[in-house]
Deep mutational scan, measured.
Amino acid sequence: QVNIAPGSLDKALNQYAAHSGFTLSVDASLTRGKQSNGLHGDYDVESGLQQLLDGSGLQVKPLGNNSWTLEP
C-alpha cells in the first residue's frame, strides 16, 4: 500500500522509488517545479508512476532490470 502526499513531483517520485524498490533515472530539469497529486493505494510500478506523472506532460519508459526513466 502506497501513501504519498501531494506536492513536489521530485519528492513524490523519490518516495515511490524507495517504497517500491525500483531505480528511477531522471534528468532533474524534467521534473523541476512540477507538482504531483500524490498516490494512495496498491499499484504496480508502471501504473503508480503514470499516476504520479498525471498532468506533468512526462511519460514513463522502462529501461529493464527494474529501472525506469522519464521523457517528455
Rank of each mutant, 00 (worst) to 15 (best):
G33F: 07
L52E: 01
V60Q: 07
N66T: 04
H40L: 11
E71M: 11
L39S: 02
L53I: 13
G38W: 05
I4L: 04
G33R: 06
P72D: 07
N65Q: 10
S47C: 13
N3K: 11
D27C: 13
E71N: 03
S56I: 07
Q35P: 05
G7L: 03
L49H: 02
G48R: 03
A17D: 03
V26E: 02
N37F: 11
H40G: 03
V60D: 00
E46F: 15
D44A: 07
V26Y: 15
D44M: 06
E46I: 14
R32S: 11
Q35G: 07
P72V: 12
L53N: 00
G57L: 05
V26L: 09
G57Y: 04
L63Y: 07
N3P: 03
Y16A: 00
Q15L: 12
L49T: 00
E71C: 11
Q59P: 01
Q35R: 13
L9E: 04
G38Q: 03
T69E: 08
L13H: 02
T69D: 04
S25T: 13
N3G: 03
S8A: 12
D54E: 15
D27L: 08
Q50C: 13
S8M: 09
G64W: 05
T69N: 04
K34D: 03
N3F: 14
L70V: 13
V60R: 03
N66L: 06
P6Q: 07
Y43K: 01
S29H: 11
S29Q: 10
N66C: 09
G64M: 05
N3L: 10
A5P: 14
A28M: 10
P6H: 06
L58A: 02
D27E: 09
V45W: 12
Y16R: 02
I4G: 03
G48E: 00
N37Y: 10
A28L: 11
L63S: 08
G57W: 04
S8Q: 09
R32A: 14
D27Q: 07
S67M: 13
S67T: 14
G41L: 03
H19I: 15
S36Y: 04
Y43D: 02
G48L: 05
Y43L: 05
T23N: 11
L70Q: 02
E46G: 10
L24W: 07
Q50E: 10
Q59I: 14
N65C: 10
P6F: 06
Q35W: 15
A28V: 10
G7M: 13
V45G: 04
L13N: 01
G41H: 03
A28T: 10
L24D: 01
A5Y: 08
L24R: 01
F22G: 02
W68M: 02
G55R: 06
P6A: 12
A12G: 03
S36W: 05
S67W: 11
L39E: 01
P62D: 11
S56K: 04
N14A: 15
L58D: 00
N66K: 06
T23V: 10
A28E: 12
Y16P: 00
Q1M: 14
T31M: 09
H19A: 14
V60L: 13
V45Q: 06
L9A: 01
Q1I: 14
I4C: 07
F22I: 15
L53T: 06
L13F: 01
A5K: 10
E71Q: 09
G41Y: 04
L49D: 00
L30A: 03
N66Q: 06
Y43T: 04
G55K: 06
R32L: 12
Q51M: 13
D44Y: 04
L49R: 01
E71R: 03
L53D: 00
S36N: 02
Q51I: 15
Q51P: 01
S56R: 01
G21A: 04
L39N: 00
P62Q: 13
G64N: 06
G55W: 04
D27F: 05
S36V: 05
H40Q: 13
Q15C: 12
V45D: 03
